[in-house]
């Protein structure tokens, strides 16, 4: 493009905007709304993922040992278990230690325990897992294996929520994907229609341009640029709104205090911000492409 064409393109962009300002604002708003929804999903998704990771740190298996198992048997068993695939460390809690721990947890109510004549608590192994093995399938398998040792009375791990939660996460993942695609397609559709309207409003002018020897790219250029700018503005709008909402939300949550000790609600990362901007631009580009192609074909 030479300077003359660039100036002409800029002039026509201004003209387009002045001719149909609301249409252009609507297009920007639509892209903004789409990215707002997308952004919400990304934030929810990354934070839920974080939460799962935090919880996964806590995944460990507790195996309760039958009363009357000798020290030697116990040491051997500990060795066997620590050699199992995925086991990082096995630590032993004796009956006495278990009681002490319970007393500590109960604090001032620990006097309730004074009335006990025998220690009802079992000794146990706490089995820490290798990081990569901390998932539902492995935990289930390992627990079953450990439960088969005759010295073991019972095995405990956070079975119920682990199941439910990983189910929920894969559902959430799929749902975000579907919703994301639908929102994306809808936005592209709305955008291409908005641009289609501006094109239709100017069809005489565009026809005349073609008749006097303007190339398609000369005709298309202002629409593309305009839409890319709208896409960027829409994304920026969405990101600003998201950030505002996020801050309000965080302030509310912090009022509830230490609940969040191990889990910090994150905003979009810089990469995700760039990704949102990119999505906005892609939407605008696709919208322009579709509508211009349709228009120039006729």
């Amino acid at each position: 493009m030479n300077p003359t064409k660039i100036v002409s393109v800029l002039k026509r962009m201004k003209r387009n905007f002045v001719a149909t300002p609301y249409l252009h604002l609507a297009a920007t708003g639509t892209i903004g709304l789409c990215l707002l929804i997308t952004g919400c999903f990304i934030i929810l998704y990354t934070n839920l993922n974080d939460l799962i990771e935090v919880w996964q740190q806590d995944i460990r298996i507790v195996a309760y040992i039958k009363d009357g198992v000798s020290d030697r048997q116990r040491t051997l068993l500990a060795q066997t278990i620590s050699k199992l695939n995925g086991v990082k460390e096995v630590s032993y809690t004796s009956k006495d230690e278990a009681l002490t721990q319970l007393r500590q947890q109960m604090k001032h109510r620990s006097s309730l325990l004074d009335g006990l004549h025998t220690n009802p608590l079992p000794a146990s192994f706490t089995i820490d897992l290798v990081e990569s093995q901390k998932n539902r399938v492995n935990v289930t398998l390992l627990s079953r294996k450990i439960n088969e040792f005759p010295e073991i009375n019972d095995v405990e791990y956070a079975k119920a929520w682990l199941h439910r939660f990983s189910g929920f996460i894969s559902f959430f993942r799929l749902a975000s994907l579907v919703v994301g695609l639908v929102v994306f397609a809808t936005t592209v559709f709305i955008c291409s229609n908005t641009i289609g309207l501006t094109l239709y409003a100017q069809r005489d002018e565009l026809d005349i341009m073609r008749l006097v020897g303007a190339t398609d790219s000369f005709i298309k250029a202002p629409f593309y640029i305009q839409n890319l700018i709208q896409g960027l503005l829409g994304s920026l709008l969405a990101i600003t709104l998201l950030f505002a909402v996020y801050n309000i939300f965080i302030a509310k949550i912090e009022a509830y205090g230490a609940l969040m000790a191990t889990w910090e609600v994150r905003f979009l990362s810089l990469t995700e911000v760039y990704e949102l901007l990119l999505i906005g631009v892609v939407i605008a580009w696709l919208g322009s492409y579709i509508s211009l192609k349709q228009f120039l074909k006729s």
């Binding site: 030479n2 003359t4 064409k5 100036v7 002409s8 002018e205 341009m209 006097v212 020897g213 303007a214």
Partner: peptide, 19 residues
């Protein structure tokens, strides 16, 4: 909605003539 000048200049702009 183009002035007379703009109408005529359009031909030259489209052809990429020097400003």
């Amino acid at each position: 909605h183009y002035t007379v000048y703009e109408n005529i200049a359009l031909v030259l702009e489209a052809a990429g003539h020097q400003a």
